[in-house]
């Protein structure tokens, strides 16, 4: 194209956005992320624009980790909120595979988070190896909308590749929750770090909605970021808590800064 312009082509050069889009398509082809199979958008412009496809891509691997020991419930809540948001749009069930020793979610707590416990299949297995095998089996089955796994150690490269291949051409939301501080290189498309945040208060000062400090540490073909996210379990909607609350004292201390 540049050749044409240099040769004095009367046509105007293509706009920069088109060139960018073409380049992006080229890059995504190279990286094996072929074809958009649908996404789970956050519904927040700031986050969705930083993710390559405008949301969490289905059929790709997403890794979620707590920021520190003790933030595990927050990370689990964030993952289940994502699943609830996905299940609210489509039919199907979710398979949650946990290695032995992880606490199983409490049904009434799931209901309180907006996820119908009747659509959750829980499977407790011996160790990480069985977790990955069960997840692969879940990806192969039809009738599931999402597959999530809670593992004891980091997500190794080999296993992440296997999961990526098993996801193949499916459109499942695929999440892996690993413990804090067990990072390892893998082919996950996004990597999230979740810490507890001060819950959103209602106008009377009572706890209204859960709130998480979410770090997007890795976003393939996108950008990273940090947000304070709140979760509305009734509307299955995320919100930016900081923007609403207005004053920093209520939204909690930013741990990265502190």
């Amino acid at each position: 194209m540049t050749q044409n312009t240099k040769n004095g082509d009367p046509e105007t050069p293509p706009p920069a956005t088109e060139t960018l889009a073409a380049l992006r398509a080229l890059v995504s082809d190279r990286s094996g992320l072929r074809g958009a199979r649908g996404t789970v958008p956050f519904g927040i412009h700031d986050i969705d624009t930083r993710l390559a496809q405008g949301g969490l891509t289905l059929g790709h691997l997403h890794e979620i980790a707590p920021a520190a020991a003790g933030d595990e419930p927050a990370a689990l809540g964030f993952a289940l909120a994502l699943i609830a948001r996905h299940l609210a749009r489509i039919q199907g069930e979710v398979l949650v595979v946990t290695a032995r020793g992880h606490p199983l979610p409490y049904g009434h707590g799931l209901a309180g988070l907006g996820l119908d416990p009747g659509r959750v299949l829980l499977l407790e297995v011996e160790g990480d190896r069985d977790v990955y095998r069960a997840m692969e089996e879940g990806l192969r089955a039809r009738g599931l909308a999402a597959v999530a796994g809670l593992v004891d150690a980091g997500l190794p490269l080999g296993q992440s590749r296997r999961l990526h291949l098993a996801a193949g051409e499916t459109d499942r939301l695929l999440l892996v929750l690993r413990p804090a501080g067990a990072e390892s290189p893998n082919v996950a498309v996004t990597r999230w770090r979740v810490a507890a945040g001060k819950a959103l208060r209602d106008r009377f000062g009572c706890i209204e909605r859960p709130c998480w400090q979410v770090d997007l540490d890795r976003s393939r073909n996108g950008r990273t970021g940090h947000w304070l996210l709140e979760w509305d379990h009734a509307a299955h909607r995320f919100g930016l808590a900081g923007a609403l609350a207005g004053h920093a004292a209520e939204t909690g201390r930013d741990r990265r800064a502190g």
């Binding site: 039919q91 199907g92 069930e93 398979l95 049904g107 799931l110 416990p117 009747g118 959750v120 299949l121 829980l122 499977l123 407790e124 297995v125 069985d130 095998r133 069960a134 089996e137 879940g138 192969r140 089955a141 039809r142 009738g143 599931l144 909308a145």
Partner: peptide
């Protein structure tokens, strides 16, 4: 979604790994 599909998954998990998925 089809109950039979989930049933196939449950059977496969039971044969491949052992425990059966539970529902609350």
């Amino acid at each position: 979604p089809d109950a039979a599909e989930t049933g196939h998954l449950v059977d496969a998990l039971r044969q491949r790994i052992g425990p059966s998925p539970v529902r609350l």
